[in-house]
Each structure stands twice: as structure tokens, then as C-alpha cells.
Design a binder for these strands. Sequence first.
DNA 1: CTGAAAGCGCTAACAT
DNA 2: ATGTTAGCGCTTTCAG
Lengths: 337, 337
Amino acid sequence: MATIADVAKRAGLSRATVSRVLNNHPNVTEDKKRLVREAMEALNYVPNTTAQRLRNQKTDTIAILVPVLTNPFFAYLLEAMDMVATQNHLQLLICQTRYSKQKELDFLELLRTKQVDGLILTSYENEWKKIEPYAELGPMVLCNEYERQTKVPVVRMDQVEASYIGTRHLIEQGHERIACTNGDKSNLGKDRQAGYRRALEEYDLPIHQEWVFSNVYDIEDGKRTLRTIMNMKDRPTAVFTGSDQVAAGMIMAAKALGKKVPDDIAIIGFDDQPIARVVEPALTTIRQPIEEMGKTAMDVMIDAIAHKNQDSHLEILLPFDLVIRDSTMSKLKSISK
Amino acid sequence: MATIADVAKRAGLSRATVSRVLNNHPNVTEDKKRLVREAMEALNYVPNTTAQRLRNQKTDTIAILVPVLTNPFFAYLLEAMDMVATQNHLQLLICQTRYSKQKELDFLELLRTKQVDGLILTSYENEWKKIEPYAELGPMVLCNEYERQTKVPVVRMDQVEASYIGTRHLIEQGHERIACTNGDKSNLGKDRQAGYRRALEEYDLPIHQEWVFSNVYDIEDGKRTLRTIMNMKDRPTAVFTGSDQVAAGMIMAAKALGKKVPDDIAIIGFDDQPIARVVEPALTTIRQPIEEMGKTAMDVMIDAIAHKNQDSHLEILLPFDLVIRDSTMSKLKSISK
DNA sequence: CTGAAAGCGCTAACAT
DNA sequence: ATGTTAGCGCTTTCAG
């Protein structure tokens, strides 16, 4: 491969001058510029990115940590971030932690080894106090998942409020016995439960501890949990799930048991993923502002890289929507409206 | 940040020695090793990856070009590649072309600018003759999408055979009037049509040109196409689609029209994506060996990087499965079996 | 406006 | 076994 020295020699100029035209420095005569351009053309020259990075002490690359790519929520979030990144000539290094604490820590090291200029966390496995120190090594932004007591900027949706609204919707449909499924014990999970509880308390409805299911993540978990619910003697008539996947699994399992949704059991999802429109009945769900969240997080990151001095705790809360479809509204009721 | 020089100074040794322990060279006494380790610890030292890359002339990074992350097919393919890459201490640079010729060419430049050690294409937009020259700049592997006349190694599924088997399955269910939907005009698309035609020809069934639909990609396209089909006076009784998304859209549209699948119209998908099990009736489909394809492609790449001299055209054909579910088998028929 | 030279952080001959 | 030194390819003072 041709290097800058080759170009310089062929153009009969110094490497410095070649570098100047490469970086559009003002002080180069048109004549020399042309000479350099011709030489570059002739040699098929392209600057070596690694060398530029070493010299410039920056990589124009942002690491994004996600648990898995195959979860559509994260795929769409990445897509949004990618739009903004591309526009700003930034590369994304997409890092899958696969829910592993160790892999997460390994990826955080990217900041220390100077492989990336910044890092966005969309979810995390380790305790926050293990993660926070890495923020000293370079700009870090939290997107989606969050932490309250921190100086790291946060872009997220109000999960408590969203879950409150979702649960209230079930109550407004006349349900008084409402179950709840949850993924992990992250702040997101806790918030969703908090919103669920707030709604029940507000309407003086009982919270049955055995109606709160944890570690419920995917379609299979949803199927299993629905069967458990259906086997209870004292059983709920509605479920607030923390995930469209889980809700979809529940609908499938309910059908297999010959139960009607929403008449035998109403189900509400979370995220508004494509699957929500595909299942039958279509899912009522909380639409997360994924695109806006991803774009905003990247904007904040770009800002952080520019004025590296940002210090005070920035928190951006994005609005959500309750999308009402058929899994909570019986056909009869909708018609009677 | 501490550099290797800082460590050397603190340990009272030379940078060379520090570098040696860093790279586990044999010729270092335990004593000095310990000294170096202590110094590294004390200074919180981590080698600068960019500097190593410049010096070693390799990046341990592979670029993977995909159209979009939000298509589950590519998300799962990436997941599989990531497994193998991680095990081999390779990073993946995931590049979304968004179906843009220009972005694709920009990403191919990664090979020239030495930002990656190799590049895997899972799909491509430009004419092959525009892409092939980049293979001179570094190892390149084709995975999924392919090209016949090339020295670039290929890992793929036999699309002609898969489509033939899928279409034959419809014929075996008694269908004689079979439509076909297709995405683009890539080799994949052409192959799928070829398989469809082969099956019809073999059974002496007519191919109606108006039953072959092109540019049909997603759920919405599927819905639209199904409505078109249902409006035909002379209409097919089965559809071979090139995509589970399209097939799912068709099922949804059929239901909305009050039509029964498979009795009014049988539908077969392609890929066996999660959506295939979620729609009702569940989709009969062609299961692509995504995981194996991704892993194998990465293996081939790792091989290509190791023995850089590989020359002859390698083509690996992976087996597929016909997964029979309910969208092609009427309940009556299955029972009568 | 242009060039010489130092150096980003690391590794690998080569020498001792 | 360890150190010295010369780069990898690029950018940027500093001189001229």
C-alpha cells in the first residue's frame, strides 16, 4: 500500500504538505494541491486510519453495549443511533454482552485502551458502582437503562409512569384482579413494578404477591407463566407484562388452552415491537420512543465529546404512548362504545 | 494514561522487556516479570490498542456488511458470527448499508484503509464487478448472498433446491395454481424463482406470469399482495413467498378478509424466523441454517487470514429443512393422515 | 507557503 | 536475558 511518503516523493513535495492537503489546511497553493492530488490518484492512496488515530488520539468510534442484537428493541435502538452516528462521521462498535458481567467489563475496557471515544450503555449487568469508575476514562451515556445517583447523562423513558398508565388502563376496563410479570431486578424492572403497584394502590385493589412473576423474559416464559396463572384457583383476569414477547407467548398459550383474550384474560405488552401487531388479538402495549431515545443518546454523546467538561447530571425523559389494540378491549365492549 | 515507557521506568527496566511480558515472550526471568507486573498494576496500565495495531499491521477486527440490523435474519446471522469471533479474540465491526450502493462502497474502503483485517458480505447492492476488486485488498467472504464466477469463498444455502422443495410441498398438498412472491433481483431472488419454476415444470403445471410478484419484502407488501391475489378472478390457491414476513402479512390480510388459511389459500414462508410460530395458523416455511452459516463463514474468514494464500474458489453449501406447520396443512388433512 | 523533524505508543531485530 | 534502536504512517510544531 502506498503511504504518505510515497505520495510526497511522487509529487516532489514533503510529507507535511501532503498531510496538509489531506486535511484541507488553508496554506497550500493550488499548484501543489493539484500535484498532490494527482500523486494520490496515481498511487491509489488512502490514509491509514490506524496511524491517524494514533497520532490524533481519537478514534471517531463509539461503543454501544447491548445485551443481544436479536432482541428487536435493541436492534431498533441501534438503528436510530447509527443514523445519527453516520451523519456525524462516527463509527459504531456494537458490543453484545450476552448478559455476561465479565464481557461487560471487558467492553468497558475499550475506553481505557483508547479504542473508542465514548461508550453508550443501553443495559448493564454489573452493579453500578463497578461501572461508574469507567466514566472517568471517557464520555459515557446511559440510554434506556439508568441510574439515579450518577453524573453520567441519562436518556430514558419514565418506566414508573408508563407502567402506571398501562395498569390503570386494565383497571379502567373493569379488571380488579391484575397480575404482573417482570424481567430482571434492574431499575427498569423495579420501576415497572412500582408503577403497577401505584395503580393498584390508587384504586384500592389488592396486590397478591403470588400474582407477581419475576424472571419472565421471552415467548416461552410467557407461555409457561400463562399456564401457571390459568391453573390457579384464585386467578387474575388481566396481566400487565413487561414485554411484548412475553405477552405474545401468553396469547399463544391461552389460545392453546381454548381461552379467549381478552375475555378470559386481558393482556398488555410493553415496547410495541413488530410482534405486537402480528399476534391475534393484536396487543395493547406501551410504545417506547425507541428511535428518539437512540438519536437523543447519540446527540448527547456527540455533545459530551465536543465539550468534554460536562459535569452536572443530565437526565432526558422521553414521552411514551399507550397503544390500545384488541388484547385488552373485548370486541363487545368496543362495539358498545 | 500510563504508557509502556512509564511502566518501564517504574520497573527500572526497558520498554522492550515490558513489551515482552505483555506478549508472553519466553525469555524473561520470573523476577523481572514480577517487577513489570507490579508496575503495570500500580500505574493501572493497559496497552494502547491503536499503537499495537499500527505496529503489528493488523486490527483483529472483521467488518460484516448487512443491509439492516432490524431484519431478524441478519441479527441472528450476526449473533452466530459474533460467537465464533469472540472465541477467537476478534472484534466485529457491524456495517449497515441500508441498501445503499454508496454506503456499501464506503464500507468496502475499510479494507483499503486497513481498519479491518477482513470483510464478510451477507448481501450486496452493487454489481459484483464493482465489488470484486476490493477482494485484492484483504480477505473477503460471501455469506448467504453469493456470486458464481469468483475467487471469493462462499458460504450459503442452495436456494434453488430449497424453493423447489417448498413449492413441491404445495403441489403435494394438491395445489395446482401456485403464486410466487419475490424480493429483489439478486441471485438469491433469481434462484428462488428458478426453484419455483422447476417444481411447476416438473409437474406440468402452468406458470402464470401474473402470479409472480416482485419487490415484495415486508409485512405490508404481503398484505397488499394478498389482497391483489384475492381480487383476481382467476386466482391461485397457494403462494410460495420468499419471506416469513411477507407470508405473515398475507395471513393477517387473509384473516381480515375472512378467508381461511390454508383452506382458501395456502401460504409458505422462508427463513423460519420467530414470527413464523407466532402467526396463526403457524407458518410452514424453509428453515435456513442461519447459525451454521454465520459460524462457518467466520471460520472460513479466520482460515483465510491465517493462510493468506487461499486461491481456489471455495463454496460451502449448507442444508436446509422444510418445516411443516399449519399454513399449508388443513386441520382436516392432518387428522386424516 | 513549505519542509525538517519530533513523536503518538508499541514491537522486533539486532546487539550485548 | 535484557537493552538499544529503528520504525509502523501520520500530524504538527517550529524554522525558514
